[in-house]
């Protein structure tokens, strides 16, 4: 059973699907938080992700220049996180805050504009071309291979994927702790519930909004770096390419539901990878060229039949 079906399915479809799902999940957290707390679809979110990946690449190159060797991307991303959060906060301050009391559509337009501004800025600084993020072929993680091999269920998972999956799990646990145990996390849930009530309860909504950018920015950079680790290259359009699957994940999980977003991300990630699996006959179910259309199809079906998402989020 494992030889004929399981090995191929798990190693070439399931694990990649899980990895992609983790990346989408992290990205979707930021989208669903801004949707819940600031009540708008932040089109610039993918660009923060992409910027985080470019900054991390820069710090990787700097580490080579200064110390003579490449840091691990998960070390090099630490300063990028701070810069990305600073960008997110200043974008909010100068381009979103003026529209807090305006119709939602104004701030959506502003974020639409920010999407282009940030991307253009990255293209001016780093150029429009694809850049290699990490060189070399990713070899399967030896420990995991031997361990699983001894159970006759050999897993050929590259170390980068182990990092991505474990990293996502840790971030999720921390995020869960924050939302349920800390004061600011509970306030984020409260504002997401009802901004008006939060205001008359005395909650400092601006402080909660800043916290949202911290969390969203952090998760976005991690998603961007994980994406770069997975594909081993970065390019300025990667944010836009991921925007749709992330929106799909956020809506699928239920708007304003962070854990719904995680679930949605996993579903979209699996669906994209598994759409290429030869379920019937020998050919892939769906030509790989249409892989990026999967997220959108799920999104449309969802919007028509269950706009509140799997976990019954808010319908605007």
């Amino acid at each position: 059973m494992w030889d004929s079906f399981g090995f191929e399915f798990v190693n070439y479809y399931f694990v990649p699907g899980l990895v992609l799902g983790c990346i989408y999940a992290l990205g979707a957290i930021g989208i669903t938080l801004t949707f819940g707390i600031l009540r708008f679809a932040n089109f610039a979110h993918g660009e923060i992700m992409m910027t985080g990946a470019f900054l991390t690449w820069t710090f990787l190159e700097l580490s080579k220049l200064i110390f003579g060797f490449y840091f691990h991307p998960l070390i090099a991303c630490i300063p990028s996180i701070f810069i990305a959060i600073a960008i997110a906060l200043s974008v909010d301050r100068f381009f979103y805050k003026p529209f807090r009391d305006s119709p939602t559509i104004m701030i959506v337009m502003a974020s639409f504009g920010m999407m282009l501004i940030i991307r253009s800025l990255v293209q001016v600084i780093w150029g429009p071309n694809q850049i290699t993020f990490v060189k070399g072929i990713a070899k399967p993680n030896g420990i995991l291979r031997d361990l699983s091999g001894s159970f006759d269920m050999m897993l050929l998972v590259p170390s980068k994927h182990v990092f991505i999956i474990l990293g996502t799990v840790i971030i999720m646990l921390a995020f869960n702790y924050m939302l349920t145990k800390t004061r600011i996390g509970k306030a984020m849930r409260a504002v997401s519930d009802s901004p008006d009530l939060a205001k008359v309860t005395g909650i400092d909504v601006e402080q909660v909004i800043r916290a949202t950018w911290y969390v969203g920015g952090f998760c976005a950079v991690m998603a961007g770096v994980f994406m770069a680790m997975d594909t081993q290259f970065i390019m300025s359009t990667m944010g836009f390419r991921m925007l749709l699957p992330m929106f799909a994940a956020a809506i699928l999980g239920g708007i304003g539901r962070p854990f719904g977003a995680v679930l949605g991300g996993l579903v979209i990630g699996f669906a994209e990878e598994l759409s290429a699996y030869p379920w019937f006959g020998n050919g892939p179910l769906l030509s790989p060229g249409y892989k990026s259309g999967v997220a959108f199809s799920i999104l449309v079906v969802m919007l028509i039949f269950r706009p509140s998402g799997i976990l019954k989020g808010r319908v605007f």
Binding site: A187, A190, D193
Partner: peptide, 27 residues
């Protein structure tokens, strides 16, 4: 201190979390 007519509790927060939010200005 103010109690609105409708929509006056955070529905997805627990009772205790609601009260904690009430104490936001004097934690």
């Amino acid at each position: 201190s103010y109690v609105p007519q409708t929509n006056n509790v955070f529905v997805s927060l627990t009772v205790e979390e609601n009260l904690e939010m009430g104490a936001w200005v004097n934690p």
